[in-house]
Structures are given as C-alpha cells and as structure tokens.
Write a protein that binds this DNA or RNA. Structure first.
Lengths: 223, 223
DNA sequence: CATGTCTGGCTGTCAGACAATCGGCAACGT
DNA sequence: ACGTTGCCGATTGTCTGACAGCCAGACATG
C-alpha cells in the first residue's frame, strides 16, 4: 500500500467547515458552564458573539440539540439542557452498557500498539490524579484511544453524545475529593483485562467503573 | 382536574413546525427505500420536491445526519448512509444493550395498564405474523408502548436513532420467511417476564430476541 | 498519453425581510 | 384590589436572492 507513505486515513480534514468550528465553540461553552443549564440561547446574540450568520447558528443549534446538549422548545427557542436525576441515572446506565461494549470491541479489534497507548493513557490519568496535570484532558485522551481502537462509527457517535451529557451533569455535581485516584485504579483494572485480552473481564471492570462514578455523582446530585 | 376536559397531555402538538414535517417526509423516504443507501441528496432537488427553502432543507439534513440516516461529506453534501457489516453488528449489539435497559426501566416504572398495553401490542404482532395485518406497524406500536412506559428521554432518543438505522439495514437485507412468528414468540417471552415484574428475565429475553434478529439479518447481509 | 485548464453543478455562508407566536405589561372594568 | 383584555416587543420560523469556493468531469495541449 502506498497509503502508508501518506498516513493511511482518508485525510484528516484540515480546514473544518465554519459550522463545525462554531459548534465546537458553543459546545465548549456549555461544557465549561459558561452557559448554564436552563439558560436560553438567543439566535441573535449568538450571531453577534460568534460573528456568523443566523442560518449557521441555527444549524449549529440543531446539531447540539441532536447531541442532547440543548433542548429546543417550539416557538421559544433553544436552552441548555438541564437533566433530571432520573435522566442522569439512565444516562450513566446507558454509558455503562455501551462502554462495556466498546471495550469488548477494543479487545477484539485493537492492535498491540493501541493497547500500549491505552496503558499509557491510564498511567497519565493516575499521574494527574496523584500529582499534577490536566485530569479532564487525560481522561479525554483515554477515551480517544479507546474509541479509536474499538473502531465503530455508530458506537463512537452515540457514546460521544452520552459523554457530553455526563459532563453536563458534572456541571451540577462535581469533583469529590478522593475520587480521581479511585477512578484511575478502576480504569487500570480495565486495561489489565484488556492486556490479558479478556473481553468479559474488561467489560465487567468497565461497568463497575461507571456504576461507581454514577454513584458518587448522583450522591452529589440528590445530597 | 379541568385538564380531563381537554385531554390531559401537555398538548399533542397539532401543527408541527414545517421543518419537522419535512424531516419526517425525508426520513420516511429513506426508510421506505425510495431513497437508496449511497444516493446523494441534492439540496436544490429537495427544495423543489418538498416546496421549502434551502435553509429549511439544510436544517433537516443536519437533523437526519445526527440520527445517522444520512452522511455528510464536506464540500460534497449529504448522501443516504450505507452501513458496513461491522457497523450493522455493532448497531444490533448496542440495541440489545439499550433495549434490555429500557425493558428494565419499563418493569420499574410502568403501571399495570401500560403492561396490559404491552401485552396487547405483542398479541397484535403475533396476529399480524400469522394471519394478516401491518406487521411493521404492529412492531412500531410495540416499541411505542415500551418507550412510553420506560419513560426516559435520553433512552428514547438514542434508541429511536438506532432503530432507524436498523430499518436502514432492513433495506439491504429483508424478510426471512418464518421469522415474524419467531419474533412474536420471543417478544411474548419479554412480556411474560415483564408481567411477572422480573426485570432480569425480561432483559435477558430482550437481548435474546435482538441477538436472534441480528443473526438472521447479518446472515442475509453476508450470504 | 499525460498533464494542464475550463466550466458547470453544488455546497457553504451571508444579509435582509416578513409573518406568526409567545410573554409580559399596562389599561380596564368590576 | 383583582382578574380580564388587549396590545407590544422580542424571538423564532421561514423565504428569497446572492456570491465565493470546491469538486469532478470535459476539453484542450504538449
């Protein structure tokens, strides 16, 4: 294959369409809580603050609505989604099921180098949990590797949406003290199973991790 | 409650926004195979055939893209998604996980009348499988009841997307002879467990059903 | 035959316009 | 003082028309 010379993939799309840049900006704003749940998104304001036309803004809003980050009320417009406690529980449970599946696929489909990358990612999480470093970023990289290795378009798309909503949750609740270290340990268990190529064990460990995360999160929510 | 005079619910949305009507139309066209997988969707054509402006058409396309029914290639436009065999397998597996979860929620949350409605729905499926009647429609109604009873926005939204993509699959493969009767039997098992309020058994039966459906479907695909 | 160039078809994006609708506020009658 | 009524501003839903940029295939050229 000559493709190895250029780097296989069908081209990483260097210049993203304006619409996607804007989508990313707004999504970040929501996840960073610069737009709080329940807050209305007025089209005119967005056009001004982002410097794009209303048509573009509207497409962005539809996109984010599909991801579940904003909710559109007919004839009233979009607002940042605010999740109920039961929604939160469901989302975590969905994540548990689907990430377990993703981990299974990873075990089946990922090459040794990708397994090593996953190991590195979890190490970085542990480091950031103990000492210093970008914990959220480290977790993001972990999931990036996981998704790439499990190589499933549909799974990736769906999980991305769920993950975003979880972060939306993290808005309401947040960082419990000893939690990062625990999380790192749980993820290490996942990678251990993956390295042993034991899909069942890996899936189990994954479910345990998310159930645990859900427990601490909802405790914050209702408490 | 005075609401009983008008019919309880927060209003069934009589006049849907134009955009949604159009979305439904196009979605139907895709699922009924009047638009085949791989076929390009040209904006101008859609504006003419549907009698709406390009702006509206574009919002509709973004919506369907988010549902996974169409794929947009930057600078080239949208085409009806065509799924790979491995995508199909993943989608079925995701459906298995999530519908199992939905059934669990149904057992927890649904009232007795909703359980009865589910029973009626499965009976109708059986009838349509044996003698005559709208089989697809019957299945749709079954899922409608299921979703309403499990009462979870996120679950409903996600599963709707998956279900649509499964139907897209059904485009490529299709109706195996004795299959409908089997399916009816499997769903009956689900309802039996639901009536017994046994969430685990119901979830298991559900997973079995979808695995079975996936098996026959992928057999068609690769064979 | 390989390479460069042109052109038509589409998409990406913008600006501006208008009707329909929602929410609140103020005037009104009682 | 209080519930109604009616009006107005803010915002969304949708349309029109326009223009630049990109892609693919036809065409010309050496």
């Amino acid at each position: 294959m000559t493709s190895s010379v250029w780097g296989s993939e069908p081209l990483p799309r260097v210049a993203a369409p304006l619409r996607e840049q804007v989508t990313d900006r707004v999504r970040s704003a929501i996840l960073d809580l610069r737009l709080k749940p329940g807050e209305r998104l007025i089209e005119r304001e967005l056009t001004e603050n982002l410097g794009v036309s209303r048509a573009t803004v509207r497409e962005v809003i539809r996109q984010l609505a599909a991801e579940g980050l904003v909710t559109v009320v007919p004839q009233r417009g979009a607002e940042v989604t605010s999740l109920s406690a039961s929604d939160a529980a469901d989302i975590y449970e969905m994540r548990a099921s689907l990430e377990a599946l993703a981990v299974r696929r990873f075990v089946q489909r990922a090459g040794d180098d990708e397994v090593r990358a996953l190991r590195r990612a979890v190490d970085e999480i542990a480091r950031s949990a103990a000492g210093e470093g970008d914990h959220l970023g480290a977790k993001d990289r972990f999931y990036e590797v996981l998704m790439a290795g499990s190589a499933s378009g549909p799974l990736q798309q769906t999980l991305a949406g769920l993950q975003a909503r979880v972060r939306l949750l993290r808005a309401t609740s947040l960082s419990v003290p000893g939690r990062p270290a625990e999380a790192a340990e749980e993820l290490r268990a996942v990678v251990d199973a993956v390295e042993a190529r034991d899909a069942d064990a890996a899936a189990d460990a994954c479910v345990r991790h998310i159930r645990h995360a859900a427990a601490t999160a909802t405790a914050q929510l209702t408490g």
